[in-house]
């Protein structure tokens, strides 16, 4: 396992816990990630603005 994966564990856990305790955070987080993955990273001008 790469070293940085270790660094991700605790923060990911914190985010997951927050997302579960406050479902609105979880839902909007997933929405933003999906938007980022499917839309923003595929449209170069948008990508430049939001880099």
């Amino acid at each position: 396992m790469p070293a940085y994966a270790q660094q991700w564990r605790v923060p990911t856990a914190i985010v997951a816990v927050l997302g579960i305790i406050f479902p609105l955070v979880g839902v909007s987080l997933v929405a933003v990630l999906l938007l980022d993955y499917f839309v923003i990273s595929r449209i170069p001008p948008l990508r430049r603005i939001l880099n």
Binding site: I14, L18, F22, L24, V25, S28
Partner: peptide
Amino acid sequence: DTLVELAACWGLVLLI
């Protein structure tokens, strides 16, 4: 109401 709630929850994320 939902927007305020969303902003409040994200406010917590901002604090952390």
